[in-house]
Design a protein around this nucleic acid. Structure first.
Lengths: 167, 167
DNA sequence: TATTGTTATACTCTATAACTATA
DNA sequence: TATAGTTATAGAGTATAACAATA
């Protein structure tokens, strides 16, 4: 019998498996895994403002301030003024940040293969493709949107009789 | 262009998307998402001891003590003495825990469909199947194994010249 | 008036250390 | 001696509140 009949359970298991396997590669970076993801966004020119970054990576904007501080101190990213809106700080990668990203990226490909070792190479590509589409869909859904909207959909489906699952 | 060329980034995005979408369903449970997963293991008779549960769900055994305390107080699980080793407390589900699990489980299926809305139904099944296999593989890999073993594999592949990605 | 980013502060979660009981 | 579980304590991570600058 499978030990994971639940999507959330399986996601958590795989997420932790990846986190553990990538530790040796990412723990030396400022901000660890999250720091790498911010650098990654900066390298691809999709970082945007700090608030946008914070929303995309699921943390408070104050946390992003500290993280960008560390990344900037390490010379990996830069805060740039946004000509269109002087309140924003656009986060861009430095040359050093780009070089670091490329080096780390190669080692992470090995980590990914290790995590997905239970699948054939073809299946790995298929899985990555599907996962990416789910992720992109989640990313498209406006991160600033009211989180309750999702809950409302679900409540409308399942009814209001069992709102309190405990009592 | 895709916003997620990286497995870890995509996993994080999907994981947070699921966490956000399941909030309304799971936040009222003791221990939230993790509490539900422990109940789920207990319902399926695969919970085992508290240490085993802690390892499977990626937390310290002390955290599991507190969590099981809350679940037991809520009447959802029970600590049972293990005849084979009196040090162990085997965690089993109560009738109430089983009922709760079934109710929540139905609502979570809707959440899952919402998270995977970017895929067709066939693709959703395919994705879940592959994800489950990756998760089972991660679960099989002895959770007590030395985490450094993974790092050693990776270092052997990528060489030792760039151990410090920053300087 | 609302939003971005910053700082100081408070809170939540988790781990460490020390202990008992069992093996 | 080593491990499961518990408790008290300390630490890491994160959010809240208040503020200045900008829209």
């Amino acid at each position: 019998m499978s030990t994971t009949e639940d999507l959330g359970l399986a996601l958590g298991l795989v997420y932790r498996s990846y986190a553990k396997a990538s530790t040796t590669v990412l723990d030396e970076l400022p901000g660890g895994t999250r720091g790498y993801h911010v650098i990654s966004d900066a390298v691809h020119g999709r970082a945007g403002s700090q608030v946008q970054l914070a929303q995309r990576h699921g943390v408070n904007k104050t946390v992003m301030t500290y993280l960008v501080d560390d990344l900037e101190t390490a010379g990996l990213v830069q805060r740039r003024p946004d000509p269109a809106d002087r309140r924003n700080r656009v986060i861009v990668a430095t040359d050093r940040g780009r070089e670091l990203w490329e080096r780390v990226q190669e080692r992470l490909r090995e980590v990914e293969r290790h995590v997905m070792a239970g699948l054939t190479t073809e299946e790995q590509n298929l899985f990555c493709g599907l996962l990416t589409r789910v992720a992109d869909h989640a990313n498209q859904t406006d991160p600033t949107a009211d989180p309750c909207a999702v809950g409302k959909d679900i409540e409308a489906i399942s009814g209001s009789g069992d709102r309190d699952p405990v009592s």
